[in-house]
Write a protein that binds this DNA or RNA. Structure first.
Length: 262
DNA sequence: ACTAATGTTGTAGG
DNA sequence: GCCTACAACATTAG
């Protein structure tokens, strides 16, 4: 479910309810979401105060008075400040005022505590909304296909399959193009496209394809603006050519063969 | 029954 | 080291 715009929307929806709250107790039920000793994690969190709630790439980073919680939503994870536990609830945080539930049917998400800065977050590339053009172009100097690079969280942190495809379409770049061979103009266009797509998606609360909702259970609406993702066979909004779907980096990749020449 | 799904990681081979 | 393919993780929906 969650790429940068969805995670950002979740953070914005839950932050006001978490900041300054104390965690009275917590419980976890999935060995996949919370690897290791789940009871130890629960007791570690009991009594902690939430000092900050932020986002880095696709991670939700919750700063505590002792240590940090890094939450990744995987494919189907949800953080909810409303509602009741269900069969797919794998984390329950009881707060001094309110609650926080972690739901995740596929259990690809992770909730991990660390004393210092979270290791998995430390390895992430720059934020796509913050990187400047010079650094962006430097980082593009690689032999990989541009779509594969956009999915690589060490290249940029936060893009996933939807926004990679939408950004490449907006920049009129073929997903199989070699990153290092993009002209300066095309690199500039790509960075701008990423910024515009992500900002517009955040403004619309993210894309709700099947699962995604924010912390209040509200879906986003950017899916109605998708121009290639999930539109295989439908006419390109620019030229009417049927949108094509191919596999790149083992992921479905949607593009217009006429607007996005190699 | 089969396929694909907003993701990440580890392994193997070129 | 870089790059790609593939499997694995677990569940649901078409």
């Amino acid at each position: 479910m969650p790429e940068l715009p969805e995670v950002e929307t979740v953070v914005r929806s839950i932050a006001p309810h978490l900041a300054g709250r104390r965690i009275l107790s917590a419980s976890f039920s999935s060995k996949h979401v919370t690897p290791g000793n789940r009871a130890a994690l629960a007791s570690r969190l009991a009594g902690r105060r939430v000092e900050s709630v932020g986002r880095r790439g696709k991670f939700i980073v919750i700063g505590l008075d002792q240590g940090t919680l890094a939450v990744h939503l995987g494919m189907t994870g949800r953080l909810l400040i409303q509602g009741r536990p269900s069969e797919h609830t794998h984390g329950v945080f009881t707060l001094d005022d309110g609650q926080l539930l972690y739901d995740d049917p596929r259990q690809f998400g992770r909730i991990e505590w660390s004393a210092g800065p979270p290791k998995r977050v430390a390895h992430l590339g720059p934020e796509p909304l913050e990187i400047g053009f010079e650094e962006f172009r430097q980082r593009l100097r690689r032999k990989a296909r541009v779509k594969a690079l956009l999915l690589n969280q060490r290249f940029l942190a936060g893009l996933g399959n939807i926004y990679a495809d939408e950004s490449l379409f907006a920049a009129a770049i073929h997903p199989l193009a070699t990153a290092a061979r993009l002209s300066k103009e095309r690199a500039c266009r790509l960075r701008q496209a990423i910024r515009e797509i992500l900002n517009e998606a955040i403004a619309l609360g993210g894309s709700s394809i099947s699962d995604y909702v924010d912390g209040n259970g509200q879906p986003g609406s950017f899916q109605v603006r998708h121009r290639v993702y999930g539109r295989e066979g439908e006419p390109c909004v620019n030229c009417g050519t049927p949108i094509r779907r191919i596999l790149v980096a083992q992921r479905s990749t949607h593009f217009c063969p006429r607007c996005q020449k190699r």
